[in-house]
Design a protein around this nucleic acid. Structure first.
Lengths: 231, 231
DNA sequence: CGGGGCGTGCGACAAAAGTCCCTGACAGGC
DNA sequence: GCCTGTCAGGGACTTTTGTCGCACGCCCCG
């Protein structure tokens, strides 16, 4: 038990928005957190269900997504170690705004809305951490609306590649472009697999990237930026 | 001066998320609020500029929007009496995530980020009010992403008509469907004016609505709902 | 009462996105 | 090593969305 709590504490320190919280608050959060394991592909919670609590990724990767009646998927966000999700439902008490599923085997720590609320009332620093977290989420969604509404698939893809490259660099796990499959890229960009394939070929024809199954290398960053902005 | 403060207090009570705050907090907010007038079409603040503070609509209507390089506009939200906007920048201190402009002559009350932050630290009830406000904003954006990514223009239009009709009823200002121009509907739905015209004609051909310049009447609500969901 | 400006109606066309379908490559399990 | 399922490559076609162009009606204002 004490080992578990210790592990949770370490995890909480890896959550950017929580890192600066006083130890006391982190300990209280850790005490309230319940770990849970999910297998690859397993559903974590469903859109519309009553608030499933705050989820923190302790291992593996997770997607939060919407499905259309026709079965097409739009991924709202992909979450990794140290990310929190379902903040919105936790903070306003409404139903989960979207569904979540594990992309790989994953371990999550879950804190109920009641616990969060109790702790946030006692510790204003936690309330501010949550506010900054949800503000970041909102900025991401604004960018997503802008993308979907105002940019072509090719431009969106260029932006995605640039963003992933930047993220990979800043994390040191350079160039293992974790982009997995074209189908997933399509779900993130709000289109279909075939469009991703065509857009990749276009970019390669223009000499901006090189790619073969599961590996994409950026050859001309400035050119990619131009595509990302211009169209 | 005392009259002005009184007016501001009345306004703050009309903000849904603020309505239940204790008088003391409302008075402090009112003291910090600066009123300002804008003419129709006037820009209020620009995307990317440093945080412009919390804005509250005291009169008139306002849009928050993004522009593409090609000049197309995506309206993220239309705000009316008692709505607050630019919450995100106020809460996280980053730049404004989008631009804002007055749709009609408008009066806004503006509270600086510093004041909000100071008051929220002193009064946790205000912090929670802000949290619920931004959570609502985030839910709206999630719905917007879903719409743009997974629904046809016709389905989006059906949803918009249903939403506006519901709002109009619940406010008693029934059927004066404030939808103004087709161009604005297009900007809200992420498409162009001509598509709105075609989609309206389609819906009319199917007997679901009737319309002539500036007046849209829903004839078959269930049918509209079917269109809104199905496609 | 005669413009102008704005919003609309509508058709022809162009481009972007999506669908269908089939082939072949690769990886993991047996 | 072989079989099977998943993923990618890519062509042909359809549908949806966006662009262009122009005429019309309405309303405001001089």
């Amino acid at each position: 038990m004490s080992r578990l709590t210790c592990t949770d504490l370490d995890l909480l320190r890896r959550v950017p928005y929580f890192a600066r919280l006083p130890d006391e608050v982190l300990a209280a959060l850790a005490a309230a957190a319940v770990p849970r394991e999910y297998g690859r592909g397993q559903v974590i919670f469903l859109e519309g269900d009553p608030c499933a609590g705050l989820h923190i990724v302790a291992a593996g990767e997770v997607k939060v997504f919407k499905l259309s009646p026709q079965g097409r998927e739009q991924i709202l966000h992909r979450f990794r170690l140290g990310d929190t999700f379902n903040d919105v439902a936790v903070l306003d008490g409404g139903p989960n705004p979207a569904s979540a599923a594990a992309l790989t085997d994953a371990t999550l720590c879950i804190i109920s809305r009641a616990d969060i609320r109790r702790l946030a009332e006692r510790h204003p620093s936690l309330a501010w951490a949550l506010i900054e977290s949800i503000a970041g989420r909102t900025r991401h969604l604004v960018a997503m609306v802008e993308d979907l509404s105002l940019r072509s698939v090719k431009a969106r893809l260029a932006r995605l590649l640039l963003a992933e490259a930047t993220r990979a660099e800043s994390l040191g796990d350079f160039d293992r472009s974790q982009m997995v499959t074209q189908a997933e890229m399509a779900a993130r960009l709000g289109t279909v697999r075939e469009m991703i394939g065509r857009a990749l070929r276009d970019l390669a024809d223009e000499g901006l990237i090189e790619f073969n199954r599961h590996r994409i290398v950026i050859k001309d960053r400035a050119g990619l930026v131009a595509v990302a902005e211009g169209m």
